[in-house]
């Protein structure tokens, strides 16, 4: 069995790549899949703290590539979840410590043991980006509804397609429903119109993301979080289910709409 290798990328920094990687990975493992998260941001590792696994790192990605340790030794098992592992980035090296061929081999080796290999790509379009996409067979582009992030996403989509990663999927992060309704934030249709790629998910802006990141626990495991619910939908879509997107511009109140969409409007038992 060969697993899927998915790179999570964006171009611009700070749009939620690492949070998205952590949540999708956790969501897939909650659905019974074996998952390894790979932090490809060498020199600026972050996925470990977002996952709350920062105290358990012994070896890292560069150690594996350089043959300092075996691949299995560098994988950190997340004890909270059935089959979730992290391969942390090196913090003291820079992105030139590995090359695309080595990353491709690493991804292939991991895909032989896991259902999903999720690569957290660094910001930018230089060596780190080229390394991260080298072994991937699918790409997720994360953006926020801001001109700078959308512009960078467009550039990334072009670069992904030029590297043979066809049909990247879009996640629109940090949508603020109230601003969309006022006409002060681009809506989903605007962004699909501009970027012309398939939509994988829309994540509402949610304070619980900050809270869960403070704790090192992905928000997807928090039942009452809207962002968590949106990520659960993303995971189901990734697994091939057909889940409708939320309509942000109807006259229904936002919470009513979300409640309806997620089936939370049932009376408490």
């Amino acid at each position: 069995m060969i697993g899927e290798v998915i790179v999570v990328t964006s171009g611009k920094g700070g749009v939620g790549k690492t949070t998205t990687t952590a949540n999708i990975g956790t969501g897939l493992t909650l659905k019974g899949k074996s998952v390894v998260l790979v932090d490809a941001d060498i020199g600026l590792r972050n996925l470990d703290v977002v996952m709350g696994l920062e105290n358990r790192i012994v070896y890292d990605l560069v150690d594996v590539v350089e043959g300092v340790c075996r691949l299995r030794q560098a994988l950190i098992k997340d004890k909270r979840y059935p089959n979730l592992f992290l391969l942390p980035a090196a913090q003291t090296k820079d992105k030139n410590a590995v090359n695309p061929e080595q990353m491709q081999k690493l991804a292939t080796d991991l895909s032989e043991e896991f259902d999903y290999v999720i690569l957290d790509c660094p910001a930018g379009i230089e060596q780190g980006f080229k390394n991260a996409i080298a072994g991937a067979n699918k790409a997720i582009v994360v953006t926020t509804p801001e001109v700078s992030a959308v512009r960078d996403a467009d550039r990334i989509i072009g670069l992904l397609e030029a590297s043979g990663l066809r049909n990247p999927m879009l996640i629109i992060n940090r949508i603020k429903m109230e601003m969309v309704k006022r006409g002060d934030m681009m809506n989903i249709d605007d962004m699909i119109d501009i970027l012309a790629i398939d939509l994988l998910g829309v994540i509402p802006d949610d304070d619980l993301i900050v809270v869960s990141t403070n704790r090192g626990e992905p928000v997807i495991a928090t039942e009452q979080s809207l962002a968590g619910q949106a990520y659960r939908n993303v995971v189901r879509r990734l697994m091939g289910e057909d889940i409708p997107f939320m309509n942000l511009e109807s006259d229904d109140g936002f919470f009513k709409k979300m409640a309806k969409l997620f089936g939370l409007n049932k009376k408490k038992q």
Binding site: P145, E146, V147, V150, R151, D154, R155, G158, V180, R182, G183, D184, M185, M186, N187, D190, D193, I194
Partner: peptide, 18 residues
């Protein structure tokens, strides 16, 4: 509305980026 301004500006800048 500011989102329409954003959209128009983006469309123009992307034509040349692309």
């Amino acid at each position: 509305s500011s989102k329409d301004i954003a959209k128009e500006r983006l469309k123009l800048v992307l034509i040349h980026d692309r």
